[in-house]
Design a protein around this nucleic acid. Structure first.
Length: 488
RNA sequence: GGUCGUUUGGCCGAGGGGCUAGGCACAGGUCUGCAAAACCUGCUACUCCGGUUCAAAUCCGGAAGCGACCUCCA
């Protein structure tokens, strides 16, 4: 098995990956909050951890990959204080909250499918695990690390920190600092310490999504779902927990605190965080209003986009940067990615047409290991891609008859490309994307040629065209102003 | 303001004490009926100022720019 190094946010260094249970990996990744369309920022972790998931499986692990759907909780920060985001959107659109969640979940799935992101093994809904979250809150209360205040339950950060000395370790935060930098929040008076966070929140009258609990009718706190569902499906300790860097604090820090307070240790061995995507140097985010949805990328319908970008272009673009680096969006960079990606796909097709020689004039034996080395070094997909381009050059050189490859070496290159391009990096050939314009153009050409034939009274040709198109499922309809067509 | 990170060629982006990615763009060439593609060649860069070293883009110190986080966020 390959020796995989992954960067652990907890230790700030690359560590050799060793699963708790031999040959099995449990990984949990924070999924989307389904109250809006997915944007590039959602694609980054999805693709990053999709590649990790694919690679772990490729090198022989059996992986249980859990990625949640957040359809409850999460307080609004501004205007509508304390209102559940889902509920707010529902009221605005006059829809049932769960209808909104379902709608955006479906849209999210469609976008992820387009990006060739594999579905996780389990995709639990927060709303389906309120019981588990209530139980978790009770356990934390029983352990003495939470307190009830006016129907809400808060985590006692100070007590936790006194006993475990670890709050802030993941994010490199100093707890004392938090006192002076905390903003005012709704319900802050209910807390003993400004750094305490809600485990259960009593619902205000305007809340639509609400559940019974021992403390009040309300909804679960911001960080409980991942702890509850991670524990339920992966156990008290699992291997990898992933998510965006912006979730490090407070979300993941709080997850660690919740889990540690009831079982003495954090939820996982390796924390992995992907970096952000920026647009004009600024973070792309829902609340900043500067985001471009994935659908807008696919259709090109956004003022910042000069053209539509195929899902695979987006995927390739993201994989061309290392996951821990920020990536700045620009049309120029995307166009460059699109061209490079096309070149790679073209080389793969060319590979299938190469004439084998008796012997090879180039040594291609090293590429496979070079690709593994790059992947093993904290999923360095940009390096993998650079090796793939080197291979593309070899392929093209052979195609130009300036070098030779034996059948065995051609097969080796094909094997390496199949493995890394398609299986591990999850790219797929998408040259046949949206064909509408193409078909229109082709049909115009054909019908023009037929019109010429008809003008020349060449009925044999014009009928042949009509009959053969008909056999292909295209009906030609002659009219006074020329012919039109219809696809059956 | 605090904490952390970052600054690489026209652009995107790896690397991270001496070898030195890759893509895109651009220029010249080969091939070609013309074009495209492909191939060859060129473009050899690391914010600035000090320091360590035989050797620094890489390590150390400082400055500046940029960014992220500091209880919505992937």
């Amino acid at each position: 098995m390959q020796q995989l190094l992954i960067y652990n946010t907890l230790s700030h260094q690359k560590e050799l990956f060793k699963p708790i249970t031999p040959d099995h990996v449990g990984m949990y990744v924070c999924g989307p909050t389904v109250y809006g369309d997915g944007h590039l920022g959602h694609a980054r972790p999805a693709i990053t951890f999709d590649v990790l998931y694919r690679y772990l499986r490729h090198i022989g692990y059996k992986v249980r990959y859990v990625r949640n759907i957040t359809d409850v909780g999460h307080l609004e920060h501004d205007a509508d204080e304390g209102e559940d985001k889902i509920a707010k959107k529902a009221r605005l659109e006059q829809l049932e909250p769960m209808e909104v969640a379902q709608y955006y979940t479906n849209r999210y799935h469609a976008a992820m499918d387009a990006l060739n992101v594999l579905r996780p093994s389990i995709e639990p809904l927060a709303s389906g695990h309120v019981m588990e979250q209530i139980e978790l809150v009770q356990r934390i209360l029983d352990a003495g690390y939470a307190y009830v205040s006016n129907g809400s339950v808060y985590f006692d950060v100070r007590k936790y920190h006194e006993d475990f000395k670890s709050y802030g370790r993941l994010s490199g935060r100093v707890i004392e600092e938090m006192l002076s930098t905390t903003r005012d929040l709704d319900g802050q008076e209910e807390k003993r310490f400004s750094g305490d966070f809600a485990l259960w929140k009593k619902a205000q009258p305007e809340h639509i999504m609400r559940w019974n609990s021992p403390w009040s009718v309300g909804f679960p706190g911001w960080h409980t779902e991942c702890t509850a569902m991670g524990t339920k499906y992966l156990g008290e300790t699992f291997d990898i927990h992933g998510g965006g860097m912006d979730l490090m604090f407070p979300h993941h820090e709080s997850e660690i605190a919740q889990q540690t307070s009831v079982c003495g240790h954090g939820p996982c061995r390796y924390w992995m965080h992907n970096n952000m995507i920026t647009i004009n140097g600024q973070k792309m985010g829902k609340s900043l209003g500067n985001f471009i949805t994935l659908d807008e990328f696919f259709t090109g319908k956004h003022e910042l986009l000069t053209q539509a970008y195929a899902p695979m272009t987006i995927r390739f673009f993201i994989l061309q940067a290392h996951y821990r680096s920020t990536v700045d969006f620009s049309n120029e960079a995307l166009v460059a990615a699109e061209k490079g990606y096309t070149r790679l796909m073209q080389a793969y097709k060319t590979l299938g047409r190469l004439q084998p020689s008796k012997s090879s004039s180039v040594d291609v034996s090293g590429y496979r290991q070079l690709c593994y080395d790059a992947m093993n070094d904290d999923l360095n997909t940009p390096i993998v891609i650079s090796h793939l381009f080197d291979m593309a050059k070899v392929i093209n050189t052979v195609y130009d008859k300036k070098a030779t490859l034996s059948q065995a070496d051609i097969d080796e290159l094909k094997g390496v490309m199949d493995t890394f391009v398609f299986e591990v990096m999850g790219l797929r050939d998408e040259s046949a994307k949206d064909n509408t314009a193409l078909v229109d153009g082709l049909m115009k050409m054909i019908l023009d040629a037929r019109a010429t034939a008809k003008a020349n009274k060449d009925w044999a040709t014009s009928d042949k065209i009509r009959d053969e198109l008909g056999a292909l499922g295209v009906t030609v309809k002659d009219g006074k102003d020329g012919a039109t067509y219809e696809l059956n």
